[in-house]
Design a protein around this nucleic acid. Structure first.
Lengths: 143, 143
DNA sequence: TCACGATAGTCCGAAGTTCGGACTATATTG
DNA sequence: CAATATAGTCCGAACTTCGGACTATCGTGA
């Protein structure tokens, strides 16, 4: 077993989590693509501007716009004009989109539970703490 | 700052690493796409079969085949018949492909160094250890 | 106050990615 | 040795992504 680099080691469990969530959503009739899910999970309860979303997901504005089109068409998000800036819009989660959040949460929790069982509570806590710390130097969307 | 789920927290630094490597390769004239890079990084020194690669990367055989076509065309990998199985092939890294490995290594090391500086050596060591442990329950390609 | 550079978002078209389905060839198994 | 499984390929369609060009609005400095 060769020594994998830290990046790939991070990607493996991420992919496991993502796959589990998307598969569960599909079982409940919500067929999101990976691209759609990656965008959707970045939308918080307060909404977010498309350009911020583009930065957070590291997609271009065009790509993001196309994915938002789909999410909007499927009824998961809404785009409303930003009252504070005539050029901008705000993306928010609709009631139907909230279903995705509500369905995802238990899946994420179950997987985190499985990880905690394997690693032990202390090391799991440390993992989260380290990753949060790491955001300070790796997340392009921190302001 | 809302509490992000563990999956997303893992993805953020992964993406940072991936971006840094691909950007550096491009600076040296090697223009790999993200998809190509994700496949390439899974090829070890002993070579690997396309079907194993497909499983590891969670791509279908067709998608993987298409990406291998590109990597082969660009001269980074070679596909040779598997002497042990007439149906199979073995994907190996060519001399030109080895350049990618040699260029990537210092970039990965530099980023790991930056992370270590931020986190401290002990917590970085723990991070790697925890992630390696986690593979046991999250990596579809462990045999 | 207003011209001008910066920013938010969109439209268009091309290239790259991904997959489902169907297929051939080889291996394994009972 | 027939039946089934596995390795890989071809084809075509849908999705993803981006570069370039564009409009509208904002912010700023003279």
């Amino acid at each position: 077993m060769p020594e994998l680099n830290l990046g790939l080691l991070l990607f493996i469990p991420y992919r496991a989590m993502e796959t589990a969530v998307v598969a569960d959503l599909a079982r409940h009739g919500h067929h999101l693509s990976i691209a759609q899910a990656r965008v959707f999970q970045r939308i918080g309860p307060d909404g977010i501007r498309p350009s911020e979303l583009a930065e957070a997901t590291q997609l271009t504005k065009q790509t993001l716009g196309s994915i938002l089109d789909q999410l909007e068409k499927a009824g998961y998000v809404a785009r409303t004009p930003d009252p504070a800036d005539g050029r901008a819009r705000v993306v928010t989660i609709t009631r139907r989109g909230q279903e995705l959040v509500d369905l995802s949460l238990p899946v994420v929790e179950e997987m985190e539970r499985a990880w905690t069982e394997h690693l032990g509570p202390e090391r799991t806590r440390q993992l989260r703490e380290v990753l949060v710390d790491l955001r300070e130097i790796t997340d392009p969307f921190l302001d």
